[in-house]
Design a protein around this nucleic acid. Structure first.
Lengths: 123, 123
DNA sequence: ACTCTATATAGATAAATGTCAATATAGCAA
DNA sequence: TTGCTATATTGACATTTATCTATATAGAGT
């Protein structure tokens, strides 16, 4: 039950502050990068794309991804780009086809962070 | 290396489709809910708020959260609302003060999903 | 009853996002 | 070379988002 104002008369406005609450552990740039990964997953279509790639566990042709959604090709391409820029997936060209796959190390980063968060607590 | 068109003459346009790629495992509404959690974490300020609450491991006064950021009170309030609506945090009023805390079960859901994704693969 | 304080809500605004239609790019096939 | 195919890029547009200022709400102290 943390509260900087606890036991300080209500009238007092700016109280000496918060050595109890540790400063941000996530440096701003680190938070930026992690947030970009979460954000990429924070869109149902992209979440499902990552789910497809992860569960298939290999390289999947864009055409197969497209066929799972009722969206235009440019829209899928746009979402794939967002996932690439977040570092969550990568791809490889083979002739005309592009094969996408997840980057497990990046997913691992997310799992580790969330794991640290709930590490101490009972489920 | 999945590709519905593999070994089908290029000229052929609509090929018989994709029984190899399993249908979406994440139902649309499930994806919606999970995506909302990821989206909530996909904003650096909210990510840091959750990090603060998780690492402190208890209930934290809004005033203490505000003091960590260079943002106005309504902006922090707005982000807390987004986290609440995603189900990631909850709060409790005590007099004038609101004490926020994480909901570990929801975080657990995220960790489980990501864990399933990378489960088979080497890190 | 009045005032002060902590938090939430409303309204405004600039910026970012998701989608589509149209076009570009580049490999393959005839 | 000419045309077809898979994917990416561009540009437009409506929606959502992050932020602020101003205001509302409601508990506490006097």
């Amino acid at each position: 039950m943390l509260n900087i104002h606890e036991k300080i008369p209500l009238a007092t406005t700016s109280a000496a502050c918060c050595d109890e609450l540790p400063a941000l552990r996530l440096a701003s740039d680190e938070a930026q990068q992690l947030a970009q990964m979460f954000k990429a997953l924070g869109q149902p279509v992209r979440l499902q794309i990552v789910d497809i790639l992860s569960r298939f566990g290999g390289k999947v042709c864009v055409c197969d991804i497209e066929s799972q959604f009722d969206l235009t090709q440019p829209t899928i391409s746009h979402h794939l780009k967002a996932l690439r820029e977040a570092g969550l997936v990568d791809y490889e060209m083979r002739g005309l086809w592009a094969y996408y796959f997840v980057r497990p190390a990046q997913l691992q980063q997310l799992r580790m962070l969330v794991g640290e968060w709930i590490g101490g607590q009972p489920t």
